[in-house]
């Protein structure tokens, strides 16, 4: 059986963290397994955790009258899901649904926030990593806003 610290070390997200920091993070982590179509979280719920996808696929979705459910983004092996745990009011902005049977590592956000408050060096290292993920997702969202593959002059959807 692998230790949680070993499991965490496989995620690119944590690459470069020292053993002490990994041990702190591992103290807040649990492994979860989801069946296909099971939700990790729902829009509006308190955001107490975030997830790293070990194997599987998670879709971030919103539903809108007339449009049904729309998939905003997907997270695959190694990807991070959720940063609402880090930003007030700590509530999920979207739904997160396992598209296929998915195993993931859940990190207790409230626990980690507390540790980061006590240890600003750890906090900075984690925030740097979250910033990279957020930046990539924001960039991708901006480019997708251009709807580059749309027919010229055509309407979206």
């Amino acid at each position: 059986m692998r230790t949680m610290a070993e499991t965490l070390a496989d995620y690119p997200f944590f690459a470069g963290l020292d053993d002490e920091a990994m041990a702190l993070v591992a103290g807040c982590a649990t492994n979860v397994h989801l069946a296909a179509d099971e939700f990790l979280f729902r829009e509006g719920e308190p955001a107490e955790r975030f997830f790293l996808v070990r194997q599987g696929r998670v879709a971030l979705e919103l539903h809108a009258p007339g449009q049904g459910r729309v998939v905003l983004d997907t997270a695959d092996d190694g990807d991070v899901v959720g940063w609402s745990w880090l930003v007030p009011p700590y509530r999920w902005f979207t739904d997160a649904r396992a598209v296929v049977p998915t195993s993931a590592t859940a990190i207790d956000g409230a626990c980690l926030r507390g540790k980061c408050d006590q240890d600003p060096v750890l906090g900075y290292q984690l925030l740097q990593r979250v910033a990279v993920v957020m930046y990539a997702r924001l960039q991708a969202a901006r480019v997708r806003m251009l709807d580059l593959y749309a027919a010229p002059g055509g309407s979206r959807v």
């Binding site: 696929r57 729309v70 998939v71 905003l72 997907t74 649904r97 598209v99 960039q139 991708a140």
Partner: peptide, 12 residues
């Protein structure tokens, strides 16, 4: 853009 029935990836 994809409906939930899409099992593949969504993103750039």
């Amino acid at each position: 853009y994809a409906p939930p029935s899409w099992r593949g990836r969504v993103g750039l």
